[in-house]
């Protein structure tokens, strides 16, 4: 689910982020990111399962945003997402927003 506020895009992923959906999510995001998005926040608070395809999605989006001088944040990764990212030593690789205050600050 996508919410757009000026140049900020909030993408909420829910349920399982696996090979079954990652190509579709990447395609949808790439279409949206081509229309002037300067900051992308990915809400992972309701993701209850993520595999390495999901990690690849996050890395791909991060690379695209950073290489264009733009910003990419993960918001409230669920314990399952945090565990998977820690397994591959990537949790600290991403910029993490925790809590509503940090989310609201990022949305402007």
């Amino acid at each position: 689910m996508l919410e757009r506020k000026d140049a900020v895009l909030l993408a909420k992923l829910t349920g399982e982020v696996t090979l079954d959906i990652t190509n579709d999510v990447k395609r949808t995001l790439n279409e949206e990111l081509g229309s002037g998005v300067e900051k992308l926040v990915m809400d992972l608070s309701n993701v209850d399962f993520m595999d390495s395809s999901g990690i690849g999605l996050l890395v791909s989006v991060n690379t695209r945003m950073r290489s264009g001088g733009k910003f990419f944040y993960l918001y409230n990764p669920s314990p399952q997402v945090e565990k998977t990212l820690n397994l591959v030593q990537l949790f600290s690789f991403f910029e993490i927003l925790s809590g509503e205050d940090e989310l609201q600050a990022a949305m402007v």
Binding site: D51, G56, T63, T84, V88, Q89, L90, F93
Partner: peptide, 19 residues
């Protein structure tokens, strides 16, 4: 092996070996 942080793939067998 765990690939570099910018790699989009190649982590599956590493994850299995860790768990």
């Amino acid at each position: 092996e765990n690939p570099g942080p910018d790699s989009e793939g190649g982590r599956g067998m590493f994850i299995i070996s860790r768990l």
